[in-house]
Amino acid sequence: MQHRVTIRDVAARAGVSAGAVSLALNDRPGVSEATRRRIVEAAGALGWSPNLAARSLARSPGVHTIGMAIGRDAVGMGLDAVHMALIGGVESVLAERPCSLLLHLTAGPESEIALHKQWWQSGRVNGAVLIAVAPEDPRIAPLHRLGMPVVAVAHPDHSGPFPAVWSDDGAAITEVVRYLAILGHRRIAHVAGPATLGSSRVRATAFEAGAAELSLEAARSVPTDLSARQGASVTRTLLAGPDRPTAILYDNDIMAVAGLAAAGELGLRVPEDVSLVAWDDSDLCRITWPTLSALSHDPFAFGAEVARCLLQLLDTGHAESRVHGTPVLVPRGTTGPPPRRS
């Protein structure tokens, strides 16, 4: 566990008293300019700033500030309704204490690690929510060394020493594969998320296992960046092939909508020629024509459970990993039996 920098550490590095550090950093008289500069340099070198979170706790016990970093690439593609609902669910629970959520954009794992280190050592946060967790995620070991309370939005196989909150995506994928097989589909494709993302790997593994169990033909999972552009591109490639799938499952709603448009461009009818299923039953799924069959879940309630898990960890020093719900298939207008010629 990494030592949390305190005012005494700054004082020792600058060769002054803790009182002098307080005077200098609060811009009060009582120290010379040379001493003030030395103190500021020492604080900067140690990554320390006045402990705002501790001051808040001293005034109001039980009040916490929770940090959450979001990658700029996710924002670049547009934070979808699922992300926003998850954040809203977290905030709905924090507001009951009252506590606050501190959001920040980061450029990658190294940037996020540095941000959490600065937040923790300066006392700006009391804990954090870790999202978009990857297998062997490079953020986990450094954050664990900090000693900062963290809850990971991830399957526990990928959360390391941190408690995890996850939905049973594997069971949901299995349900979809069996449903499509019952309709008569033998060639099913999965347009997945990045292979580096933990949730994508869980879904892809479950898809391949379900297809193998049912002895389905040419079932394959294709990784993407979850964008509409790649969703459309992969759909065109799949449907233009000699053994095109008769059903496609997408890892989000945006790619499914793009896939629906791509099928139309190729002159294929949905669901007569190809069936489509979306992950995330959003408004987008209900305004397409035909309306998209989708896996429905409650990201707001999921976010609330994430917040409850982290507050339990802060209050008691311990929280168990927990599964929160299994997405449920909602069949609509884009699924039906495969074409007879298949």
Rank of each mutant, 00 (worst) to 15 (best):
I131Y: 03
E112C: 00
P109L: 07
A132I: 09
Q118Y: 06
A128C: 02
L115P: 06
G123V: 15
V125G: 04
P109G: 06
Q118P: 07
R124L: 15
Q118N: 12
W119R: 03
V129Q: 09
A141V: 07
I113G: 08
K117Y: 01
S122Q: 11
D137L: 03
D137K: 04
I131F: 04
P138G: 10
G123S: 08
A141Y: 02
V133P: 04
S111R: 10
R124T: 11
G108L: 12
I140W: 08
S111M: 02
S111I: 00
A141W: 01
W120H: 05
A134D: 11
S111Q: 00
A141C: 07
V129I: 15
A134N: 06
V125L: 12
S111E: 04
E136G: 08
Q121E: 13
P109V: 09
P109E: 04
V129G: 09
V125H: 05
P138M: 09
V129F: 12
G123P: 02
R139K: 06
A128E: 04
K117N: 13
E112I: 03
G127A: 14
G108T: 01
E112Q: 00
K117T: 14
V129E: 04
D137G: 09
G123K: 12
A114H: 06
I113D: 09
I113M: 00
R139Q: 03
H116N: 14
E110G: 02
P138C: 07
A128V: 11
G127T: 11
A114R: 14
A141I: 03
V129C: 00
P135F: 05
G108N: 04
D137N: 04
Q121I: 07
R139H: 11
L115V: 09
R139W: 03
E110N: 10
P138E: 11
S122T: 13
S111N: 15
E136C: 07
G123E: 11
G123R: 05
H116T: 04
I131W: 01
R139S: 10
P109K: 05
A128H: 01
L130V: 03
G108F: 06
I131H: 10
A132D: 15
L115K: 03
V129K: 10
A114M: 14
Q121P: 13
K117Q: 06
